[in-house]
Amino acid sequence: MKRWFVLAAFLVVAGFLVLLGTGMRPFGAPKAFEMDQYFIDYTQAEVAANNVVTAVVFDYRGYDTLGEATVLFCAVVGVALILRKVRR
């Protein structure tokens, strides 16, 4: 019973993945490209940086990097809380 349930769940997930894979766009041709083109055109003038990826990560999307740093801090705090020395 459990084996058949696992097999059915596997087939459903694999079917969804294959169905999504057939509808993918070709490599290098995204659906919405206006924002990418804006970054490519204006990064060197606005941020004065040559690396567009770093400019997006630290300047245009700085809030996301701040959230990422917060996630890292929370992970370190969780590890330090669990693995601390227990005082009796």
Partner: peptide, 16 residues
Amino acid sequence: VPPGPNPGYLNTAGTL
């Protein structure tokens, strides 16, 4: 930075 390819100037990009 000048527009175009990356010349590799280290003293650019502001706060980055």
